[in-house]
């Protein structure tokens, strides 16, 4: 397979779905992701949102920052609700409406996982976007099964002892039509993946790394930088999987950039010892070797910009 790159020259086309005046924190990475997810999906969309920061951002009732119908469902039922909405639309003969789930990592990796796995197994027709801030940040930064190894949360004060679930691989293993990872530091890549998913059918899954400023300990202007460092240091690879087996790596790590450059930008990793940093580095390197093996290509890094 040919090496594949993100397209820095992809022209983002935004429909005005997401509205200013929403309730996200200043500089919120998740709000930025919501902007590109919603505005790429366009106005012919029904959204399903479980309890999460996204629900806060979409409110407050009776106001809504999203100029589309939004169904706020229960934390465990996003995929099931979306499947139901899709079937109702089919029954009404409306085949030009997108059904979109925007859930957090708690509602995807943990509490909503059973419904999601079932919907994936049935290949229900929806775009499922997980905005992953690696914890229950909305309720005060408790750990989720997305919280990375050794990261501090209020419920793992010494650092989380277990590794983060690899949700992209889990979903790819369901052999759904499309799985992608994305992050807000690469908005063209994110918008392109949403637009691509929109044109497909079946269950399309995108996990978007969205830095939580408060939960991660990042300054107000740092979400994009931290997001980019996650990719540049190899901590969070950007790639796509079609039909569970056709892999394409979009952006590879910048050669010589240690994961420490990512970790040191966040307060949640402040307690790490040198040995722990080395352990995380080894872990990242190992995951890359697995990804390379699955993708059957060596990744050619594209963005080589320095950071100061």
């Amino acid at each position: 397979m040919e090496p594949f790159h993100a397209e820095p020259n992809y022209i983002i086309e935004e429909a005005p779905v997401f509205s200013s005046g929403h309730n996200a924190c200043p500089g919120c990475g998740e709000a930025l992701a919501v902007r590109y997810v919603l505005n790429s999906m366009g106005p012919k969309t029904v959204a399903v949102i479980p309890p999460s920061c996204i629900a806060i951002i979409s409110g407050p009732q009776p106001y809504s920052s999203m100029r589309i119908p939004v169904y706020q469902t229960t934390l465990e039922a996003s995929a099931a609700s979306a499947a139901g909405i899709r079937r109702a639309l089919v029954r009404q003969g409306k085949d030009d409406v997108n059904v979109l789930v925007i859930a957090g990592d708690g509602g995807t990796y943990d509490i909503g996982f059973q419904a999601l796995s079932g919907a994936a197994e049935r290949n229900e027709d929806m775009v499922y976007v997980c905005l992953d801030n690696e914890g229950y940040m909305n309720t005060g930064a408790q750990k989720s099964s997305s919280t990375p190894y050794l990261a501090y949360t209020t419920s793992t004060p010494g650092g989380k002892p277990n590794d983060k679930k690899d949700i992209a691989e889990i979903m790819a293993a369901h052999r759904v039509p499309y799985v992608a990872t994305a992050t807000v530091g690469y908005p063209e890549d994110l918008a392109r993946k949403v637009a691509k998913a929109k044109e497909m059918r079946g269950l399309r899954f995108i996990v978007v790394l969205t830095p939580c400023l408060d939960g991660w300990g990042v300054p107000d202007d740092g979400a994009v930088r931290v997001s980019r460092l996650a990719v540049q240091t190899g901590f969070f690879p950007l790639y796509e999987v079609e039909e569970g087996e056709r892999y394409a790596i979009n952006v590879g790590p910048t050669p010589g950039w240690p994961v420490e450059r990512y970790l040191e930008t966040q307060r949640r990793y402040r307690h790490l010892t040198a040995d722990q940093v080395a352990a995380i580095q080894a872990h990242v390197d190992h995951k890359w070797s697995l990804l390379h093996a699955r993708a059957k290509v060596e990744c050619v890094p594209m963005f080589q910009g320095a950071e100061i």
């Binding site: 509205s19 200013s20 005046g21 929403h22 009732q61 009776p62 106001y63 809504s64 999203m66 589309i68």
Partner: peptide, 17 residues
């Protein structure tokens, strides 16, 4: 309520933050 959501939040002045 006849309308569940208004579909906008741009009446808010988040600039005051």
């Amino acid at each position: 309520p006849t309308i569940w959501t208004t579909g906008f939040t741009d009446v808010f002045n988040t600039g005051t933050w």
